[in-house]
Simulated assay, not measured.
Amino acid sequence: MVARSGEELLKICEEENISLSEYAIRLEMEDKGLTREEVFEKMAKNLEVMREGANEGREKKIYSVSGLIGGDGYKINKYLREGKTLTGAVTVRAMAMALSSSEVNAAMGRIVACPTAGSCGILPAVILSAGEKLEKTDEELIEGLFAAAAVGMIIGMNATLAGAEGGCQAECGSAAAMGSAAVVEMMGGTPKMSLDAGAIVLKNVLGLVCDPVAGLVEIPCAKRNAAGAISALCTADMVMAGVDSKIPFDDTVSAMYKVGKSLPAALRETAMGGVAVTKAGLELRKKVFGEE
């Protein structure tokens, strides 16, 4: 049975006494006609690409083709090594990983668009940084990715994952919701707790616009990836402490979709609003396209 809503997903998990990740694994096996080993092997390849992208920009300075962004993942990783962080190693490492993946993407490198290229840094940063702290194996990290997939499927069915349709709340918001839900499962939380985490993350970014400077997925996108990763991790802690979402996951997804549809076109990836049309944003656009 394919869950069409968070409520249906929870019902299936409860009736069959399975986790979100197990639901996604079984669904993939049935849908693609693959064995469990084959399904894990496919996801393992995604994990490896995610790991490469999350590390490359931390180990060396990576610059986008446009030259608008680059080197920030390296800077933050250097800052982490210096031991001066205020918020701790997990959060700072996650920011560095998220920025690294975003920079690799903008440099035309290899990433996993999960759920989109513009939000590609969030899930790897969340899964890998949490996995390191929790001392998880690669197999457990892969299960975390499947848990994220279960949540992402529900969002995709009932709302949107595209910034052009729903603003950045649909891209970075969905990625962060997926990541937070996955970490809750990795920490031993229930499917209900995972969906609570996803709901809280989405509520906190309702209305977030998509306003890429020069129409490129670089500014402010990369830093929103870093912020999304931190939101995911902090929300996972919140839920594991016993905090629940007063607004159910399905209601939150519905609200996100309606808010996205209400956003004017200028705030949905057209680069005609938000920071894209500020004085600095327009100057950067001229620089990219040689209009100076």
Rank of each mutant, 00 (worst) to 15 (best):
T270N: 12
A147G: 04
M108A: 00
Y74H: 05
L267R: 10
V39C: 01
L34M: 04
M108L: 10
I18C: 08
K136E: 06
T160E: 03
D237A: 15
G189I: 00
P264N: 01
A255C: 13
E7G: 11
G290T: 05
N46G: 10
N105P: 05
P220A: 10
M43V: 15
E56I: 05
L141Q: 07
E269H: 00
I62H: 04
D196K: 01
M187G: 06
I111C: 00
E52F: 15
M43G: 01
C234I: 15
A280H: 15
K45H: 13
P220W: 09
E16G: 12
E135S: 13
A94E: 12
I25G: 06
A241S: 14
M240H: 11
G188R: 03
L20I: 12
T278L: 00
S100M: 09
L134G: 04
V112T: 14
G70T: 10
I69R: 00
G290I: 07
L161K: 11
G57H: 02
M238T: 13
A149Y: 12
L161S: 10
T278V: 00
C234V: 14
G83T: 08
K258R: 14
K61R: 15
E30L: 04
K258M: 05
L80F: 00
D244K: 13
T116P: 07
S64V: 06
E283G: 09
G228S: 04
S102Q: 03
L267Y: 11
A125G: 14
T35D: 00
R268Y: 02
A113C: 07
L145R: 01
